[in-house]
């Protein structure tokens, strides 16, 4: 790899830093660990940049390295060992159309939505973060997380349904409490 390629790498990678760090914080739950993960990701990517094919998706490639780095870290291994999710059995029909709660969702403040994201199963959280924060296409998410597009769609639907229920439940409770007072 030449100096020119290093410059090219820097140009492509630096704009992704905030997104990668934010994602790393969410998955690892620890800013120090997130910093190490991003640093390691950058080093791995820099070393592998020569093999990175121009025209393929650089962002998905970077998130994929980050996620693999996380999964082989101590926290990542712990997560893999404790994970008991069977979201793949989730059928599309399980998302029963409910009455939209637009007003409630609008009322949800940042802390509440953050709490809703935090309580998601890690594999669902990753998908919704990549979809709504990084605004990745399903195909990119599938590439970054190394899962089929169908799984992306089902996890995303499930994650949204949970966030929505969490917000609705929290705000309805508050409303009830408010009436009682």
């Amino acid at each position: 790899m030449s100096g020119l390629e290093d410059k090219e790498f820097e140009k492509l990678a630096v704009p992704l830093l905030d997104g990668l760090y934010n994602f790393a914080c969410w998955v690892s739950g620890n800013p120090d660990e997130a910093r190490d993960l991003v640093q390691e990701t950058m080093l791995k990517a820099l070393r592998g940049f020569a093999s990175f094919r121009q025209g393929t998706n650089f962002r998905a490639w970077m998130f994929r390295i980050l996620r693999n780095t996380f999964l082989t870290s101590r926290t990542g291994l712990e997560r893999r060992n404790t994970q008991q999710e069977d979201e793949e059995t989730f059928a599309e029909a399980a998302v029963s159309p409910e009455t939209p709660e637009i007003a409630l969702i609008r009322r949800a403040n940042t802390e509440l939505v953050q709490a809703a994201i935090a309580q998601l199963a890690p594999t669902w959280r990753e998908v919704i973060l990549l979809a709504d924060l990084e605004e990745m296409k399903y195909k990119e998410i599938a590439e970054a997380l190394d899962i089929p597009i169908g799984t992306v769609m089902s996890r995303l639907a499930r994650a949204r349904q949970q966030i929505r229920s969490y917000i609705v439940a929290a705000l309805s409770e508050k409303k009830v409490v408010g009436i009682k007072q």
């Binding site: 830093l17 905030d18 990668l20 760090y21 934010n22 914080c25 969410w26 800013p31 997130a34 991003v38 637009i102 969702i105 609008r106 949800a108 940042t110 802390e111 509440l112 939505v113 953050q114 809703a116 994201i117 919704i128 973060l129 979809a131 709504d132 924060l133 605004e135 949204r160 966030i163 929505r164 917000i167």
Partner: peptide, 15 residues
């Protein structure tokens, strides 16, 4: 609305 809420709340940490 949900997407917007997640986007705003999810951007929690800056490098």
């Amino acid at each position: 609305e949900l997407k917007k809420a997640v986007r705003l709340a999810g951007k929690r940490f800056s490098a």
